[in-house]
Design a protein around this nucleic acid. Structure first.
Lengths: 257, 257
DNA sequence: CTTGACCCTCACGTCGCGTGAGGGCCTAGA
DNA sequence: TCTAGGCCCTCACGCGACGTGAGGGTCAAG
């Protein structure tokens, strides 16, 4: 059927033809053609007949492009941004998240106004111009996007504050996991002060890692819980998970009593 | 200062010049010019010098236009829709509300995916193409709007079901309010069976009126509470509000015990 | 060997404005 | 009374991000 799906399973990477990628993502073929033409997303390979063949890397780039587009950037700006080495895929996703959260707030506000408007209209048919004006103003706030400068500054600040901390965290994880595993395999009980200290540090690292954002924290937990391959790669398994959990429970119970 | 604000206060209606309206609503002057040029929103008056002067009716129409635009309709479609007599301002606001609620759902979904993505990226740098594809798909669902046919059908169904009921409700309100007021002024206690019956009908009418939507219900209450002019117009006042509330409390307490 | 579903490359069309250019109107202050 | 600056007007061209064919190759199924 779809060429890239069956051919050379395992040896060669999966590829998509334009139509396939378009269908899978909900974009149009024309859009992909266009992105190719302006040099924004050119497929990393072509068949002998000249068909575009998109690889996994291309898919990743497409995601970044579409995220940035939802941030309101022009395709030119997006191309420039993606060329900069200091803009990581992760930072893009985070900007996108921030933007969506703001939009939710805005939507809530607008919904409030519209519901009030609906009440007025249902009851009296005549609505004050002021009420209307304010409502319109909120509506129009939806297409006020960030400029690329604002985004750059926003991301720069985040980096200045958090990125090096993040880096440090990333490097500390394997060591911490190893230490905990050692205690576990020695049979040290979770209530032991040594384990308690490790569990404390564990909580701190998670806090730093997620930036205190409960949404990120939740999905990080899900990630470890539901993707065994991922967890294993980090030297992590259910037994360890359980051990740390018990240590943390003990820590809370002990300190509060 | 702004001409329309001070001149003939009370005698003539308030008007806005393009720049004023643009500033007040967050739209651009060019956009208003454009809407005029294509016959979508032409100011109801002009100054001797040829300045566009927008009145309250124009503001109301602008709100409808912008609501419909957020529904994804083209300006042509909007013009056609606004020309139809069966499309009321209220129906437009309700369609807008529905759309925004759907968007909130979508946004929540996408946020979930992006947070998962962020976790993956922060931890492993390598993300599965499938995950990315699904995320992209959700992103692209944001610009899939309704067609005007879908909207028409949606609104038609609502009308078939609810509009005549709505009409009936609208006509029943004054009578019901009058009856309750009569009882109140006679000094009938809220627990009296006659008042209880009226309170029951009262609750039913509100239910039908708001379509069971708690958001609308809430803002309707706020409307009556915070806008004395509005309430008075409906033959309604705080004393009556209190009386009905007590009757309803008695009704619930009595039936559940 | 055909058929039909893809794919390719031009190339022109569209929508909703942005952005001047060139020129009146109008009121505040010198 | 004059003038400066901030509005307003009408053209009119430009543009971003594709949509929509036209004309023609490709390729697996029957």
């Amino acid at each position: 059927m779809t060429a890239g799906e069956r051919k050379d399973k395992g040896t060669k990477k999966r590829t998509w033809k334009v139509g396939e990628l378009a269908k899978a993502t909900g974009t149009s073929v024309r859009t992909l053609h266009w992105y190719d033409e302006i040099g924004l997303l050119s497929p990393s390979d072509h068949s002998r007949a000249g068909y575009r063949l998109y690889g996994e890397g291309d898919v990743a780039r497409l995601q970044q492009i579409l995220s940035l587009r939802q941030l309101g950037l022009s395709l030119d700006e997006i191309r420039d941004l993606l060329a900069r080495p200091d803009v990581s895929p992760l930072s893009i996703v985070r900007m996108h998240i921030t933007r969506l959260q703001e939009q939710m707030e805005l939507t809530r506000k607008l919904l409030g106004r519209l519901e009030a408007l609906a009440s007025w209209m249902a009851a009296s048919e005549r609505v004050s111009a002021d009420e209307l004006l304010k409502t319109i103003e909120v509506m129009n706030m939806f297409d006020k996007y960030y400029t690329k400068e604002q985004l750059a500054e926003l991301e720069a600040r985040r980096q200045a504050f958090g990125e090096e901390a993040m880096q440090a965290v990333q490097e500390e994880w394997p060591a911490l996991i190893a230490k905990v595993r050692a205690e576990m395999e020695k049979g040290t009980p979770p209530e032991d002060p040594a384990v308690q200290a490790l569990a404390g540090r564990w909580a701190e690292l998670i806090e730093m890692f997620t930036g205190g954002n409960p949404g990120i924290r939740q999905s990080l937990e899900n990630l470890y819980k539901n993707e065994p391959g991922f967890a294993a790669q980090q030297g992590y398994d259910p037994a360890l998970y359980d051990y740390v959990n018990r240590a943390q429970a003990a820590r809370k119970g002990g300190s509060s009593a």
